[in-house]
Design a protein around this nucleic acid. Sequence first.
DNA 1: CGCTTTTTTCTCGACAGTCGAGAAAATAGA
DNA 2: TCTATTTTCTCGACTGTCGAGAAAAAAGCG
Lengths: 407, 407
Amino acid sequence: MLAKSSTELVRQQNSALVLSVLRREGRLSHTQISEATGLSSATISAITADLERSAIIEKSEQQAPTGRGRPRVLFSQRRDCGYLITVIISSDSIQYSLVDYAGTLLDRFTETRPEGSREAFVAAISAGLDRTVQRADIGRNQVLLVSLSSKGLVSPSEPVLVWSPMLGSEAVDFRVALGENWGDKVVLNNETLLVAKALQQRQARGAQPGASLAAISLGHSIGLGIARTLPEKDAEISAPNFGHMLHIPGGALCRCGARGCIEAYAGFYAVLRSAFEVRADTVPAKIVPLAEVDKIAALARQGQRMAVLAFRQAGVALGNGISRLLSLYDHMSIFITGPGIRYYDLLQAGVEEGLAQTHVVRLSGMPRLEVVVDEAALVFEGHVGLAFSLIDRDIIALRTPLQAAGE
Amino acid sequence: MLAKSSTELVRQQNSALVLSVLRREGRLSHTQISEATGLSSATISAITADLERSAIIEKSEQQAPTGRGRPRVLFSQRRDCGYLITVIISSDSIQYSLVDYAGTLLDRFTETRPEGSREAFVAAISAGLDRTVQRADIGRNQVLLVSLSSKGLVSPSEPVLVWSPMLGSEAVDFRVALGENWGDKVVLNNETLLVAKALQQRQARGAQPGASLAAISLGHSIGLGIARTLPEKDAEISAPNFGHMLHIPGGALCRCGARGCIEAYAGFYAVLRSAFEVRADTVPAKIVPLAEVDKIAALARQGQRMAVLAFRQAGVALGNGISRLLSLYDHMSIFITGPGIRYYDLLQAGVEEGLAQTHVVRLSGMPRLEVVVDEAALVFEGHVGLAFSLIDRDIIALRTPLQAAGE
DNA sequence: CGCTTTTTTCTCGACAGTCGAGAAAATAGA
DNA sequence: TCTATTTTCTCGACTGTCGAGAAAAAAGCG
């Protein structure tokens, strides 16, 4: 169903556009904004005056002048317009970062994740958020958004963790869990979705046409994020349940309780299980020390048969999974990340084997496969990118009625 | 990347909205349009006057008055504004339909599809299109769009048939194949995509929130169409390569040449092959007479073991495939259609078995599975719905410059 | 038959937004 | 100090939406 439009929406859209180029390029002058957006100079005047009056952007103190002529005045977001907190949840720790409205990191600290109950976990996050604002001495109401990320399955619309490696299907609704203090400004995304978002952002900055891409994170569990660039629209980002997609019907037992998931062949515990020839229906450990996997990798590199086979099997599971992904979406580039990339030399042959036989690959060729190292940086980049696009949209939509009364 | 907006775009969007409401509801009065769109009466006046001047809509002769008060004047699309030709390509025949701009079917005829070469096939379609306009005695330039559909894999952006059951990977680019006469106004969609579109339309008319859905067509090959309803946007429709998604690595030979495709287990020829215990690497026939499959179904209903097993195996392949679909997209309703539904009693247990074990189903429950009978009607409905949304958008975008000069 | 009531359509002025052109501002160099 | 140059700002024209009320057209009523 189409929606109606109006002149006010035009202004909203164009204001959002101005903020987004300011976000992407840093501080820009009047004319630069005009060029970057395609809007006329007069319109930029009106919009920047508007945003300045609302205390969203400000004129920077002028730079060293670039030549003759009237010097440029540069606009940038006001740092104190508000703050963003990102929370990166992993199996053993929780990292909090405070970011100002201009996008610069102000503070960061990491706490160990409490073991066991969901309640303790939620309480820890609530306390961590309080600590973040205390350390920076800002008010809670100055925090515009709290952006959480975790591995596992996340509801696409609500901040609900539907399934996670540590808590299983014990779902967490962060909106209710974080209560009045934080619940109303919390968003949650899958970790690998953020990686995909960050990669897509980097690609877009490169001014290429920017094709669709998928990020796959290898670790104790297997994550997937997809960024699809649709014509004329913003990229669409999603994180489907790749790790627990069916690989082999009735196959190896997964820690999710089902059988034959990709993770039950390609997760770290799966590699251990098959390298040691443990029966495939053994209940797997939640966490496997990385050192254990390293040992098997060392054996594999020396040619030990079962170790080689374990990694190869993992690779084939991934390759088949990617092939199914390509069948159900369009063709896209695949970026591989996560701690597991240190074993990629052992996985690669399997991945390619798992891809090669299938119809989609025979038809459109092997996808571009690329290993990307700095997963942590990408996750944070994705957090910031996604969060500020939400914040900017909100701030503009809310500004109008409030400000109109004030003027 | 966001796009800039302008007042002219506002008018375009609102004009498109008016046309789409008119398309959905039939003839409507001024006030009815205003209610349905949410636009003010004054705006409707301006837009309808505009569209009337451009000969896109017209005032109908007034109806029996509904009561006291000034009688309503009803607007509707002008039938003679232009025409749509839909072409439904199947393995043995090609059906042509001529539709006027108001959406009513004017003419329909079916020709047998020439066997063999791509050239003969393309020539037949070109001739069929010419025949369509000749029979109705209209000019070629009055045809606004030619909407083709076929089974197989279609490029999402271009009118290119990338892979089809009859021609294999011998691709057909209809834009160049139909040349100057038709090439510039041709679109091509997968047949089952159109079924999904039609189902989504029917759902939207029911005024429900309208969740995402997938249509699966069972026949010689297996088709899939997905209609995803995104918040605040138009539904997104796609037709991924479901039939040739990997089911069993290194499994049965598919007629596409790869191994282990879903179709190689669930297509008609696959059922025959396993019922007769032919080796799974036998090159399958392109077309299997439906009567042959009927015979096996009859045996299966009498309890003959291999026949039962053949259908069950097909069901499991479908169930596993659907499970993977649900893993890689959100949860959605599944509608099953196509000639194969007459065997659904034999498939159902396998489908449910193939779904039940997997993580996604354990987490969010069995999807809604529904059998839908009139595939042919749905395909045509989808053709018309999709084509007119394109036509209306085009007509509005093109109108402005031409008409502005005339006035 | 003329007047009133009712319903719908049409018109007018107010307001919001974008754009192009040109005025105004501010600096470097002559 | 004056001029060239570059950037920012301002003004009027244009397009669009909206609310209110005028105008139109039919039915009901005395």
